[in-house]
Nucleic acid binder design. Sequence first.
DNA 1: CAATTTTTGAGGTACGCAACACAAAATCTG
DNA 2: CAGATTTTGTGTTGCGTACCTCAAAAATTG
Lengths: 349, 349
Amino acid sequence: MTAGATQPVTRATLEDVARAAGVSLATVDRVVNRREGVRAKTVARVEAAVAKLGYRADLAAARLARGQTFRFAFVLPTGSNSFMTNLTEQVARTADWLAGHRGFIDIHHVDVFDPDVLAGALENLSPAYQGVAVIALDHPRVRAAIDELVARGVAVVTLVSDAPSSSRVHYVGIDNPAAGRTAATLMGRFLAGREGTVAVIAGSLSLRDHTERQFGFHQILSSEYANLSALPVIEGRDDSDRTRELTAALLARHADLRGIYCCGAGNRGIADALEASGRAREVVWITHELTEHTRRFLVRGTLDAIINQDAGHEARSAARVLLAHCSGEPISPDQERIRIDIFLRDNLP
Amino acid sequence: MTAGATQPVTRATLEDVARAAGVSLATVDRVVNRREGVRAKTVARVEAAVAKLGYRADLAAARLARGQTFRFAFVLPTGSNSFMTNLTEQVARTADWLAGHRGFIDIHHVDVFDPDVLAGALENLSPAYQGVAVIALDHPRVRAAIDELVARGVAVVTLVSDAPSSSRVHYVGIDNPAAGRTAATLMGRFLAGREGTVAVIAGSLSLRDHTERQFGFHQILSSEYANLSALPVIEGRDDSDRTRELTAALLARHADLRGIYCCGAGNRGIADALEASGRAREVVWITHELTEHTRRFLVRGTLDAIINQDAGHEARSAARVLLAHCSGEPISPDQERIRIDIFLRDNLP
DNA sequence: CAATTTTTGAGGTACGCAACACAAAATCTG
DNA sequence: CAGATTTTGTGTTGCGTACCTCAAAAATTG
């Protein structure tokens, strides 16, 4: 039958607590906001009343009274691959949402692949920002720039690509080595005992996320799937044309090529080369990031699986974390953990 | 270099808009809240000012001024399998969050597997609720109870299990046929051409979600993987002991059993039987819902993949949808879409 | 143009809390 | 017990919006 505690219809206010505890509003305010100058005995009385009435501060009223506003900068790449375009749009949507909560987001586009340019952008950021989200590069100058921002009291979160040795307060993104391991397990299981070689294509090995994925991939492939041997990593520079040529060469050179793992962009080139070779159905191809292109390749059967990070989730999470950090609220780690999504043809969103 | 529009530091208020449009605060209020009695020309002037200043209502202030509070009921099963226990906890956490936003959630536990009991519970729900989230059963009486609630102006969302023919405003959960298809694709690919039989274990075929998963699974298995033939569906009633015996019998009877797909609960029974048989590593086992148990089986290698729906996401999404619906705000479909997660050993959260 | 209707303005209150000033009471000190 | 100190109470203001009343101005009508 219907069970479950029924709560009061109206919420208790600070005044209710004051009345219940037999003290004044000011004293209750001192207790709840942990200001000093209240005897331990009185604190206990107030806290008892809070517990008894189930008092919860009205966040809307509190925010209004505090009257703080927040300004955040999102530093994103100028580059325009599908994932980054999508991420930018998701950040814009998040900005729209934040605008209703006294928060403003400015999007700054810089060449995040050049450490000096990126570090320079971070150094020149207006001091008006209370928080910064940045697609980081794990480079000394960038690290120093982040550390300096943090030292100035700015909340910095890294987005998609981390700088773990910096003092950023949070990393919003996936565990890239784990993503690589996931790809390797899928590859190994899809190939189920067949012998041959597997190619790994990265955008650039100077990108921490690509390197980490590649590392995770090799780790599992070599330890668990002795039937498969990995070819040396190829750098496609996230460019479709270059990647097409490299893939075509691979296919021509290695008759025993069974799989391709691409841990960066340039997927259109791979698809072209695979389909041109006529071996699209027999070669297992696994790549990252769900875009309109990769979706098409997956549906068509050229692509076998997509490892994805949800850009919308990342944008919202970064904003939430910055907001929570700046207003001293806790975050719920559960909600902010970015998952490694696996998409097959059947579970595409 | 650093580009990107820099926004004003302080947000525009209603007064700013009034000043800019050269009208009074009252008139601006009439325009933004779509009250009547304002000339079209004036409306246009005000709207121009709103656009120019980029005015956005301060949600905190608006909520405070409106002074509305919301009461929602979550109707959850009394049953205590791991997934439902987790869901209940996630709903409790969500309630905690909502409490800060003038919203209250009462959790009602009922036997959702009995249509009459569930319908009765819905019918007897206090009229004080503006919204209800329910793990539905697609049954005429339940449907009627939902329709009546909706007719009374209550926002109803179905959670985890849908009643598509009812007039609920939203379904928070995964696409179950697609989940079944996903499991089948994984099964087919992991078995990569081997011949044999595959068992399907459901909780009960009277549960819409189990039926739908099973349907999706068979659909793909029969059309794409001719090497595998599915055995008749077994009903384990989500009970570990019963499922253990059934699984043990399956293993004994079918030497060519290559895979097990479980679209319900009772996983501990399957694990026991599989491990006792000594065929745990060779039989591909795929199941639903990440729990402490299934996680253990996956890490150990007995279980090969988990199809999951994120209970935390579902609880939060249900609350957000109800809140948005009751306060007339739009929802962002993107954020409310519950994904079909695939977990392998490597991408466990 | 006067009478009527419509539109606009001025002003107020309330929401729940934060933040502050200052006075009153209680407690402690020598 | 006077004086100093700590603790508590009273009171106020403001945040930005919603919603209300009543009067003034403007537009429309006969």
